[in-house]
Nucleic acid binder design. Structure first.
Length: 341
DNA sequence: AACGGAATCAACCGCAATCTG
DNA sequence: TCAGATTGCGGTTGATTCCGT
């Protein structure tokens, strides 16, 4: 037996709501509540509408304290930061924006905010977008900066998670190393639960346009450890680093001695990627110092802008032509990277 | 003024999760 | 425990408005 339709489509009204229908629905709910049963509500309220339609109309338009109109810069920042961390889970994002509905935010993102961010992108990115499915798939991302430096990323978030996963991580993968060298990756672990995720809302996500081209080949495009500690206090992972010669190289041209990695939490994940982390003020300071040494500094706030840009251009929504060859190339690159670990 | 394409956004659709008897 | 009912969500559609020519 198939699923019963939620209502008889032939006998219910569809399309835009009239002011009279709005009034009926509003008055009924204000007087009786929803009764926990949207399916039965339209009949009780004297509406020839599907229960689903009533629910949508109430939640998106009629309920009290709905905010309409322009989104503020702060709201933009919140949306972008959350999108960068949890993807297109509009209901969760909407929960952080009082008065905004998931539908509103979704529409705003798809029609305006995404384009706004795209406008900040370097031209070549728009012409040759990298392929990825950040943040909830296990796939690679390749991109190229203005100096024709190549970057490879690997997202280690759980694929297909229906709720915020216990941990989310994003690993920046430097360019493939020479075949004889062990590669070094580093990783930032983020939110542990919805409460932690909600703290993302104040995460600064971008700086002005002038700052967007700062990075060099040695700088993965991520938020800084300082930011991480500020917003994700639980940051850190456990384990130990081991490799055949006790050292790791970064980007194929920077050797990181095993001793230098001591003092940080580090381990290989199931894919063989070295995950590093730190805890406490001292750990953060050490981490920052090491990163400066390993990576050559840079403005940490710019990391977010790049992450969000990658999200925008990788949304795979048909706005951009995805080069399948590059996708495959990126995947193969990552596989080859794992092999040398 | 007329037309066509782009932009906007309310509403719908289908699926998965959750609830309930 | 299970099947059907209901809810909630994200993707998509299509009517309307806007804007450039």
């Amino acid at each position: 037996m198939g699923r019963a339709p939620c209502c008889d489509k032939a006998s219910v009204k569809r399309g835009p709501w009239s002011p009279e229908e709005d009034t009926k629905l509003k008055e009924y709910i204000e007087k009786h509540g929803t009764g926990g049963n949207w399916i039965a509500l339209p009949q009780k309220a004297g509406l020839k509408r599907c229960g689903k339609s009533c629910r949508l109309r109430w939640l998106n338009y009629l309920r009290p304290n709905i905010k309409h109109g322009e989104f503020s810069d702060e709201e933009d920042r919140i949306i972008c930061s959350l999108y960068a961390n949890i993807g297109s889970r509009w209901s969760i994002i909407a929960a952080q924006l009082p008065g905004r509905t998931d539908n509103d935010i979704k529409n705003y993102w798809n029609t305006k905010l995404k384009k706004k961010l795209m406008a900040l992108l370097p031209h070549h990115h728009q012409q040759n977008p990298p392929s990825s499915f950040f943040p909830y798939s296990s796939s690679s991302l390749q991109t190229t900066d203005d100096n024709n430096h190549h970057y490879y990323y690997y997202n280690t978030s759980a694929a297909g998670a229906s709720t915020i996963p216990p941990t989310m991580s994003f690993t920046a993968v430097p360019p493939p190393p020479p075949s004889t060298t062990t590669s070094y990756y580093y990783n930032y672990t983020t939110a542990t639960n919805t409460a932690a995720a909600s703290s993302i809302m104040s995460l600064p996500f971008y700086q002005n346009q002038e700052q967007e081209h700062y990075h060099t080949q040695q700088q993965p495009l991520l938020i800084s450890p300082m930011q991480l500690q500020q917003y994700y206090p639980m940051f850190g992972s456990e384990g130990s680093c081991s490799s055949s010669d006790g050292s790791c190289s970064y980007g194929g041209n920077k050797e990181i001695k095993k001793e230098e990695m001591m003092g940080f939490h580090h381990h290989h994940d199931e894919e063989g990627v070295i995950i590093m982390g730190c805890q406490g003020e001292e750990g953060i300071n050490q981490w920052t110092e090491k990163l400066d040494k390993w990576l050559g500094g840079g403005n940490p706030l710019d990391y977010d802008l790049e992450v969000i840009k990658q999200l925008v251009i990788s949304s795979n929504d048909g706005l951009f032509s995805v080069d399948e060859n590059k996708t495959q190339e990126g995947m193969m690159m990552n596989k080859s990277i794992y092999k040398v670990l």
